[in-house]
Design a protein around this nucleic acid. Structure first.
Lengths: 216, 216
DNA sequence: TAGATTGTTAATCGATTAACAATC
DNA sequence: TAGATTGTTAATCGATTAACAATC
């Protein structure tokens, strides 16, 4: 087992998928799995799986494999799914609503404590029991409640002003759905970008390339 | 310039971001940029940028750099943003609505031609001028209109049956928002996965790790 | 022409895979 | 004990970076 700082981002990005697969194995009552069997199910190599898990410690048993509920719990622990990072969401459009409804379930590691929007017309609306507040109240809300994380699903053009404010009032990490480059503007802040349009463009490239090929 | 098949997926995944940055440079009236300057703006190395562009051909000029509108056009061409891949969307909840409203703009390379949902109550509703149809009509619609791509934003539990049908009627590529593993179930099909919850869990890990460190 | 910057090859770095001793 | 499978190191592979000749 190595120091947490040494763990490469590629390993970290695989953890949520491991967690999901183990969850589903557990739900199906499977108590034991070998790296070979898990590799076959996930489309990875057994070597990589053992290598990945060993970044965090020896979770298996020679000659047996891995205990599914135990491994699931260990990875959940590494991902801190039991934590409740105080989180605010800015932008209560369709995307904001979808995120609020689906993503902050138990064992997500986060707790949504406030929703903000600049559109007066929807302020006061409730989403999953949380009122949509006018973005004018954002600064005071942050001072009073000290959220750590912000989810941004607003137009990119509003992002510069907003992120300056959020970083000022102590936001440490962002789940960013806009194209504004938060990491570039605020070095040191933790940012996970979700660029939906980039995914679509990549898919377009791959689809067209594959169609060209099948026409040859 | 190499064969299209030789181009690694990591290069391809950077193309949409290059395209975005060049768009914004172009919008700001910048007509010339060097790899060094672009690297500084994007947080990459100049070497990588030249290396990436050269996978597709020599777009620059020694001693000058790159012509922004020209390079933008070239990358748009590579990404086939002018194509209109016929696309259907399944699941007209908040996420489906957000995607419909924001992602299929001009120069996305896609054209949304049909929206489907199993919820009777919302069938007939219009989203961006497209009616929500009952999923019962999906098979016949595909036979009549031959869509190439499908966007899936429905519960994972409905995915096995749905993807079997979609692949049968000729869908070649998927933008998949569910946790169902389409690629595993249908080898050969092109899949771009967007796992929002995985992004959140990764952010949780990074956030907690960083908070632990700053407490030391 | 001289300076700048590309295109491209070689060197480096890091991630994945293979191999096998340890051991359950 | 014998068979199975991990943990871990070494080998391989691929991606990124550095270097520099070509050339605008």
């Amino acid at each position: 087992m190595q120091n947490k700082d040494d763990i490469s981002i590629s390993v970290i990005k695989r953890l949520p998928r491991y967690y999901r697969f183990l969850q589903s194995l557990k739900d199906n009552g499977i108590v034991r799995i070998s790296s070979k069997e898990l590799a076959a199910r996930m489309g990875l190599t057994a070597s990589q799986i053992r290598h990945d898990f060993n970044c965090f410690g020896g979770f298996g048993q020679q000659g047996y494999g891995y205990n599914v509920p135990e491994l699931h719990a260990k990875i959940g622990e590494i991902l801190c799914v039991d934590k409740e990072i105080k989180t605010i969401l800015i932008g209560a459009g369709n995307l904001g609503k979808a995120i609020t409804n689906k993503m902050f379930s138990k064992n997500s590691g986060f707790k949504l404590i406030g929703i903000f929007d600049k559109n007066e017309a929807i302020c006061g609306n409730m989403i999953k029991g949380i009122p949509v507040r006018n973005v004018n109240y954002l600064e005071n809300f942050c001072i009073d409640n000290s959220p750590v994380c912000a989810v941004t699903c607003i137009p990119s053009t509003d992002m510069e002003e907003l992120t300056d404010l959020l970083v000022k009032v102590g936001i440490k990490s962002f789940l960013n759905f806009t194209n504004y480059d938060i990491a570039m503007a605020h070095p040191g802040v933790i940012v996970e970008n979700v660029h939906l349009r980039d995914s679509l463009l990549t898919l377009g490239y791959l689809t067209n390339t594959s169609l060209d090929k099948s026409e040859e």
